[in-house]
Write a protein that binds this DNA or RNA. Structure first.
Length: 430
RNA sequence: UCCGGUGUAGCUCAGUCGGUUAGAGCAGUGGACUGUUAAUCCACGUGUCGUAGGUUCGAGUCCUACCACCGGAGCCA
């Protein structure tokens, strides 16, 4: 007996197959029944006819409950009345385990209830579609970088201290000293880039901020390319080309999933590089003209970002921020010492910052001054300063938050649905 | 951490001005139906009204504190 998967069911048209999965839903109309079988790869309708299966088997069919695990044997047949165009004319089935009282019914539920049942919620159509798109985004990201000779180099999660000082870190006991969970792999990424030319690190990062917004998780995934012999402008080009590639790959390969989410794809089809560039100075002017009470030197809040992004139908690159609000490792603008060569990419449709990047300071003395000025523990940064001691070169990089990209491309109201098991303020389980 | 909101059946919610017996839809169970698409129709059940105090003849309803959750701010990807 051939075992088929729903996503490949076309290849078995007219053949007798076995399908293994779970009962998504079942309906009956007297002596004929319809069993929606979910196998993880898709959902297919199995037609169950009393006269074909016999009295006893049909009674078994009537006992089936939501999410009961089951093996179905039947013939694949094209039928326009079936969702997906194919159905199974059931000949036999075996109950593997009868599910009892599955909590997620086909009707409405609140987010908190569903999050408490996240391990089961993942089985529903919408969550399945999101996870498939998330995977496509990650795959496209890696394919893009791999095809341009980047090497994936992992960076540590246990670290001795903060890379950017300001953010709150999760501390943990580490054989008698305190270790912190990484909030970024970037500094290690710079070291890796000096070894590999082009590298990216891709892993979970942790921020202990007590943020309660639709954009924040305490554990999230970030990809951070780092490129040697790369200036600020080229860095922006890498970032915009990567975003363009990711969106195109999702549009080409995940149409069904976008349709499940009822995502309007017209705005995504406009995502082509180059993206508009607007300086921080221009943003300040834009905000002030728009009636915002904003002074030069401050950082943008969420409403500010949204206002700026609304002017464009593509992601917008905001560049050259005041150095005082940016991290110590960012290179100063040679044309204006008050500015740092940092950039953020703001997604359209109100999704805010998805990428943050910069050209890095490559001069030893300048970097040392900043470490001292920011009161960073110099001994822990000696290895980082080594990168400027032994063959320092111009280099740049950026970090992209996966969950924010998933939220944007799927047009979800909150990042908590973009990751299988979200970790946020007040959410550690399941 | 701050501001605002919500908490009533397994789920989603209604509950008037404080009034005597707590309400609906869905889910579930039983039945009818040979093409259903979250099927339809008939029948059946369920309550620590978030927790603890207080006001009152009487509290789901008013007051206080606490807890949980939701939204927003700050911070960030």
């Amino acid at each position: 007996m051939q075992i088929a998967r729903v996503n490949r069911i076309k290849e078995f048209d007219g053949q007798k197959v076995q399908l293994n999965g779970w009962v998504y839903n079942s309906r009956r109309s007297g002596k004929i029944g319809f069993l929606m079988l979910r196998d993880g790869f898709g959902i297919i309708q199995c037609v169950v006819v009393k006269n074909d299966l016999g009295e006893e088997k049909f009674e078994d069919f009537k006992r089936l409950t939501q999410e009961t695990s089951i093996s179905v044997i039947g013939t694949v047949a094209k039928n326009d009345r079936a969702p997906g165009g194919f159905e199974i004319q059931t000949e036999d089935f075996t109950i593997i385990q009868l599910s009892d009282g599955y909590p997620i019914t086909p009707k409405e539920h609140g987010t908190d209830f569903l999050m408490n049942k996240r391990h089961l919620w993942l089985r529903s159509k919408r969550q399945h579609a999101i996870l498939r798109i998330r995977h496509q985004i990650i795959k496209a990201t890696r394919d893009f970088l791999d095809s341009h000779d980047f090497t994936l180099v992992d960076t540590p999660i246990f670290t001795p201290n903060a890379c950017e000082g300001t953010t709150t870190l999760f501390g943990t006991e580490y054989f008698g000293e305190t270790a912190y969970l990484a909030q970024s792999g970037q500094l290690y990424g710079e070291a890796n880039a000096m070894a590999m030319g082009r590298q990216y690190n891709f892993g979970p990062t942790f921020r202990a901020e007590k943020s309660k917004t639709r954009r924040h998780l305490t554990e999230f995934w970030m990809v951070e390319p780092e490129i040697t012999f790369c200036d600020f402008e080229e860095n922006m080009q890498w970032a915009e080309r990567m975003v363009e590639y990711i969106v195109r790959q999702v549009l080409e390969n995940r149409q069904n999933e976008l349709a499940v989410l009822e995502r309007d794809i017209a705005p995504l089809e406009k995502i082509k590089a180059p993206f508009p560039r607007v300086s921080y100075d221009e943003c300040v002017e834009m905000l002030q003209k728009g009636g915002f009470d904003f002074e030069w030197g401050g950082d943008f809040g969420a409403p500010d970002e949204t206002f700026i992004a609304e002017h464009y139908d593509k992601p917008v690159i905001v560049h050259r921020f005041p150095s005082q609000i940016k991290a110590f490792y960012m290179k100063r603008d040679p044309e204006n010492d008050k500015l740092a060569l940092g950039m953020d990419i703001l997604a359209p449709e109100g999704y805010g910052e998805i990428i943050g990047g910069a050209e890095r300071e490559s001069d030893y003395n300048t970097l040392l001054e900043r470490v001292e000025k920011e009161n960073l523990p110099k001994e822990d940064f000696e290895w980082y300063l080594d990168l400027r001691r032994y063959g320092s070169v111009q280099h740049s990089g950026f970090g992209m938050g996966i969950e924010r990209v998933v939220a944007w491309i799927c047009k979800l109201p909150h990042v908590r649905e973009t990751i299988p098991y979200p970790r946020m303020l007040g959410r550690l389980r399941p």
